[in-house]
Computed example of a mutant assay.
Amino acid sequence: MPDIKFDDVSYHESLMLSRCVELAREALEYGDEPFGSVLTDAEGAVLFEDRNRISGGDRTRHPEFEIARWAAANLTPEQRATAVVYTSGEHCAMCSAAHAWVGLGRIVFATSTAQLGEWRAALGAAPSPVAALPISAVAPSVPTTGPVAAFADAVRALHEAYAR
């Protein structure tokens, strides 16, 4: 089947981003900030997925960081370089650095750091203790795609629900 384009991403990529939003919804249901991420191999097979798990007190339990840890332990450097990370929200500085240090490949994100910052400000949320930098500022050699406009409303609604 040809790779059909959907709002600047392929059909497969839109499916992976949809799964990330599902994982973000699951995170919200467990009292965590709504973020979800999926790691695929070069052919698009899912290798690992996770959701945010910060409610236990460890604020580093971001799904993107867990993906980097898992990939370092389970994939060769060559496999990591061709892997793709899909995520509901653009990596924070911590996760961008982990991604680059582990040598993972491309990142596809549904919503951007800038969008999240705007939403948080509109909701009156406290500022992050970490600078809100785009991936390109932290890991400039990592190729990225995003944000994908089709997911903005769904992700924004999850963050609004979390803020309440």
Rank of each mutant, 00 (worst) to 15 (best):
W101L: 15
S112N: 10
F35L: 15
A68K: 04
H99E: 11
A110M: 08
R69M: 11
F48W: 06
V108G: 02
F35A: 15
E66Y: 06
R59K: 13
V85M: 09
A42P: 04
L47K: 06
V46G: 00
R51A: 09
N52Y: 03
G36P: 06
S88F: 06
E78G: 14
V85P: 04
D50R: 09
D58N: 15
A45Y: 15
G44W: 07
L39S: 04
R51F: 06
R80E: 04
V46I: 12
L116G: 00
T40F: 09
C92P: 10
C95A: 15
G103P: 12
A72M: 14
D41T: 05
F65P: 00
H99D: 13
R80S: 07
D58S: 12
S37T: 08
E78K: 13
R80G: 07
D50F: 08
A110C: 09
A81D: 08
A93E: 15
T60L: 08
H62P: 03
S88G: 02
T40D: 00
F48R: 00
A97D: 15
A98W: 12
A98L: 09
G103R: 06
A93R: 14
G56L: 11
T111Q: 11
A81I: 00
R61M: 14
T111H: 09
Q115C: 05
D58M: 10
M94Q: 14
I54L: 12
E78R: 13
E66V: 04
A93I: 13
T82P: 02
A97F: 13
V38Y: 03
V38K: 08
G103H: 08
E90P: 04
L104V: 02
